[in-house]
Simulated scan of single mutants.
Amino acid sequence: MDVKLLEAFRAVVDNRSVTAAAQAMGVTQPAVSGQIAKLEESVGFPLFERAAGGRLKPTPEGMLFYAEATRVLGEVDRLTATTAQIREGQSGRLVIASHPAAAISLLPALVADFVAQRPGVSVRMISRHSDVVSALLPTEGYDLGIAELPVDETDVRLVRYQMRCVAILPPRHALAGRKLLTPALLSGQPMVAPARSPQMLNRVYGTFAAANAQINAVVEAEFFASCCALVAAGTGWSLVDPLSARSFASMGLVTRPFEPAVVYEIGVFHRRDREPSVLAAAFLELLDSKLGSPR
């Protein structure tokens, strides 16, 4: 049944005349009369009868039909509103799978900002190791993935981001007064090593070896968050991404630039065989604004 006919019928009942209904709808009186006649032909019974003064009065059948028509039009209005929300990225659910460093230091502020601007949107965050995040994607368990590189690009569209790592020290460390830290300065100093990140370990060890400096890893921790907490507790120094260092700055960490540069890389990805949803695309833009230009 044509929704426009139902809208015309509702307008006539609410305004009690074709003329007033036409004015309310912004159309001509003959147009409304024609719509009512067409609707009566469609339903097979009269919807109105003439009352005193020439005003229209709904028939008993017309009032029953009005109740149902009003309910249906309410559903249509809600569907129209929901459609607009989906189209504009204001409704729906976004699932993001990420490695722990991103789940702790990158995503919370971004997700909070994202949902604050979209009251009709919900977000689910899944935290797994990078290799698990990559393996989960074919199951379609999430919309966006964030993981340390390398990531198998066979089935995904990948955007790479680089961050220059920073050295973190306990508050009273002997080198806390230095403005720049190097392998030579940190040689032999107790270190908290990021054990779960092969790319980080290889680059750090390679950098120290090139400088003929010694790494003294007294603790190995899987997560950057653990590295930060251990450093804050006085265990030793560490090298972490700048987002993690910023997230745990309140613990009293001393953060310093490190030379030569050790780059930490992550990948943001989604399925190659389909475009990201409106919500996913909006979050990718927000993520890009946080991480800067991709590599």
Results as ranks from 00 to 15, higher is better:
79 L>K: 15
151 V>N: 11
231 V>D: 01
143 D>L: 06
61 E>V: 00
36 I>V: 14
102 A>R: 08
267 G>Q: 06
127 S>L: 10
267 G>N: 06
205 Y>C: 07
257 P>M: 03
168 I>K: 02
215 I>N: 08
28 T>E: 00
153 E>R: 00
278 V>Y: 09
93 R>E: 00
4 K>H: 14
78 R>A: 00
287 L>I: 04
262 V>F: 03
112 A>M: 12
29 Q>W: 07
242 P>Y: 03
286 L>N: 11
77 D>R: 09
170 P>S: 02
135 A>K: 04
189 Q>G: 03
250 S>G: 05
121 V>C: 10
99 H>V: 14
287 L>H: 08
184 A>R: 09
40 E>G: 05
190 P>K: 03
116 A>H: 04
56 L>H: 14
31 A>H: 08
94 L>Y: 05
8 A>W: 11
214 Q>D: 14
294 P>N: 10
100 P>W: 04
232 A>D: 01
54 G>F: 15
87 R>K: 12
265 E>V: 09
219 V>D: 05
242 P>I: 04
179 K>Q: 00
177 G>E: 01
118 R>L: 10
35 Q>L: 13
281 A>Q: 14
208 F>L: 09
176 A>Y: 01
222 E>C: 00
61 E>Y: 06
130 S>V: 05
82 T>C: 10
295 R>W: 11
168 I>L: 02
60 P>Q: 13
176 A>F: 01
8 A>K: 13
74 G>F: 11
182 T>C: 07
156 V>P: 01
118 R>S: 08
13 V>R: 08
185 L>T: 06
208 F>H: 06
39 L>W: 02
61 E>S: 10
94 L>F: 08
164 R>K: 13
49 E>N: 08
277 S>P: 00
289 S>W: 06
219 V>R: 15
22 A>T: 13
250 S>M: 02
137 L>V: 09
165 C>S: 13
113 D>N: 01
209 A>Y: 09
99 H>S: 12
173 H>M: 01
187 S>W: 07
102 A>L: 08
118 R>V: 10
85 Q>P: 04
216 N>T: 10
204 V>D: 09
229 A>P: 01
215 I>A: 14
67 A>N: 13
75 E>G: 15
229 A>M: 11
206 G>V: 02
291 L>R: 09
205 Y>G: 04
31 A>P: 03
80 T>E: 13
199 Q>Y: 11
30 P>S: 09
